Amino acid sequence: MEKRFSGVVMRATGSWYDVMHGGETVRCRIRGRLRLRGTRSTNPVVVGDEVVCEADEGGDYVICDICPRRNYVIRRASNLSKESHIIAANIDQALLMVTLRAPETATEFVDRFLVTCEAYKVPVTIVLSKIDLQDPGAVADFRAVYEGAGYRVLEVSAPEGIGIEAVNELLADRRTLLSGNSGVGKSTLIRAIDPSLDIRTGEISESHHKGRHTTTFSTMYPLAGGGEVIDTPGIKGFGLIDIDDAELWHYFPEMMRVAPDCRFYNCTHTHEPGCAVAEAVKAGEIAWARYESYLKILDEDDKYRK
């Protein structure tokens, strides 16, 4: 192995990073000053990063530089925190896995994730998981809301083999971030797509109907059919960061479609007369659930910015 090389981060554990270079995985640490550069981030180096590595005096490899990212998915590290946590970088698309029960994915989580993907220009598809366990009426209502907003919704059951082919087509030759709450079946889906991968899966806790964390660290897996998928630890909350109130509505595609018809160019779509967004909500052209999420995000995120 040469003294200095570039590669892609395939796994991040917080202290060690697996970097792929020329078909070989090299374990690396990160140089101390790299940590300082990302003072607002809990993780300066993430899966998907293109990095430059070099051997130190002891023969270990260290990541000494990070190439500019073309995109990433980011969230607030915790409530009331000013720090961010980047989930993955340099991705072609995201799949957000959602379950309406066993366990239930909160609408607010879904909408915040979608807003972040819109803000950082990451195409996103919603995967409605464990479809064989879901209520058909609830599935129809969910599809109406999110397909109405402009998102593709896939119905999947990995154990039943439902929707696996459609997911395979979506993943082919792309780098995909797979995200969602614990217990929605991310690892099970990846194993169904490529059985050769060694990924642990867990059961749902009966007492709390929540998933157990089976993925401890973010890991990128090359797929036999081409492309790569990034499996992430289950995410509980999804606080937005670096998105101003005035631009939030830009990341709701259904609001963007009608907002040019508002009476005022700087309409906030909350109280102004002649608001085309409010009229579209009243007419049922924009789902009330999505508009309510918009209002909640405006209200709740104000306290983070003080």
Rank of each mutant, 00 (worst) to 15 (best):
G225P: 11
A259F: 04
M256D: 10
H250W: 07
C262K: 09
W249M: 12
M256C: 10
G274Y: 10
A259I: 03
N266Q: 13
G239V: 06
R257L: 06
F238Q: 01
M255W: 03
D244E: 15
T232W: 05
H271C: 02
V258S: 02
H271G: 02
V258L: 07
H269N: 08
G225Y: 02
D245V: 01
H250P: 03
L248A: 12
T270V: 03
C262P: 12
V229H: 11
E247C: 04
T270P: 03
I230M: 11
I235M: 14
D261S: 13
P260N: 03
L240W: 08
F252R: 09
E228W: 06
C267P: 12
H271W: 01
P253V: 06
E254P: 08
G226Q: 06
T232S: 15
I230E: 13
Y265N: 15
H271A: 07
H269S: 04
I230G: 11
L248C: 12
V229K: 09
H271Q: 06
A259V: 05
W249A: 15
D245Q: 02
P233R: 08
G227A: 03
I235F: 06
H269I: 06
L240M: 03
C262A: 09
D242G: 00
G234A: 10
Y251Q: 10
P273S: 06
D245Y: 01
W249T: 14
D231F: 05
I235T: 14
F264V: 10
W249P: 02
F264M: 14
L240D: 02
G237A: 12
A224G: 08
G225M: 11
P260W: 00
D245S: 14
I230L: 13
I230P: 14
